[in-house]
Computed example of a mutant assay.
Amino acid sequence: MALRVEGFAIVSDDGMLADASGVMPRDLLVDADQRYLSDALDRAAILVHGRNSHEGQPHSRQRRRLIATRSVAAIAQVPDDPNALLWNPAGMPLEDAAVRLGVHEGSVAVLGGTDVYGLFLPRYDVFHLSRMPGLRLPGGRPVFPGVPEQTPEETLSVYGLRPGPQRLLDAATGVSVTVWRRCE
């Protein structure tokens, strides 16, 4: 089985993906970044996210997804969504959960939150880190465990990923993305 794990996040200057109440602020919803994400998700075989994270796009329910949760022992069907499974990473390996969705290969797009992003740090093949300059979210939800004591970039580096060139996505807001790749 060949699954490629890719993470996607947009964060504030202080490495937060949500404010102190756990809500992603409107300032982090930039059209150019949303298009970048949507294009990538269209190519993904599976999406993985926590119960409070989702991509919220018109065709979201058509995508196969694993919703990471501790509320099930291993895996369970989401009652109102045939393309989604509740998945406890402690109860079943990713590869087995993917098979339950009928996926044997392809890209696994990880969409957060903090614990889910952290779970995959040892496995990311690629991480797409977008930055919103000038925005700080004190007391917010960090992209990775250990942020803000360590920057998201330092965290990715510690786990063996290296940055590619920074790409400006939106000149008006200054939002850019850097694609980090595993070096082996």
Rank of each mutant, 00 (worst) to 15 (best):
A2Q: 13
L3V: 11
V5P: 01
E6A: 02
F8H: 01
F8N: 00
D13F: 03
D14M: 05
D14F: 00
D14G: 05
D14T: 05
A18E: 15
A20F: 09
S21E: 11
S21H: 13
V23L: 15
M24I: 14
D27Q: 15
L29S: 15
L29H: 15
V30M: 12
D31F: 10
A32G: 08
A32P: 07
Q34T: 11
D42T: 07
A44W: 05
H49N: 07
H49V: 05
G50N: 05
G50Q: 02
R51P: 12
N52V: 14
N52S: 13
E55D: 13
G56I: 14
H59L: 13
S60K: 12
Q62K: 14
Q62Y: 09
I67E: 03
T69M: 10
T69W: 10
V72K: 07
A73E: 11
A76L: 10
A76I: 09
D80T: 13
P82E: 05
P82N: 04
L86G: 12
W87E: 01
P89R: 06
A90W: 06
G91S: 07
G91M: 09
E95F: 11
A97W: 03
A98W: 00
A98C: 09
H104F: 06
G106L: 07
S107D: 12
V110M: 03
G112H: 00
G113F: 03
G113A: 08
V116P: 03
Y117Q: 01
L119W: 03
L121N: 01
L121A: 03
P122C: 03
Y124E: 01
D125C: 05
S130M: 11
S130F: 12
R131W: 12
G134D: 15
L135E: 14
R136H: 08
P138Y: 05
R141V: 10
P145Y: 05
E149K: 03
Q150V: 02
E153G: 06
E153S: 06
E153A: 07
L156H: 04
V158K: 03
Y159V: 00
Y159N: 01
G160D: 03
R162I: 12
G164I: 12
R167F: 12
L168G: 12
D170S: 12
A172V: 14
A172M: 15
S176E: 10
V177K: 04
R182D: 02
R182S: 02
R182G: 02
R182P: 02
E184L: 07
E184G: 09
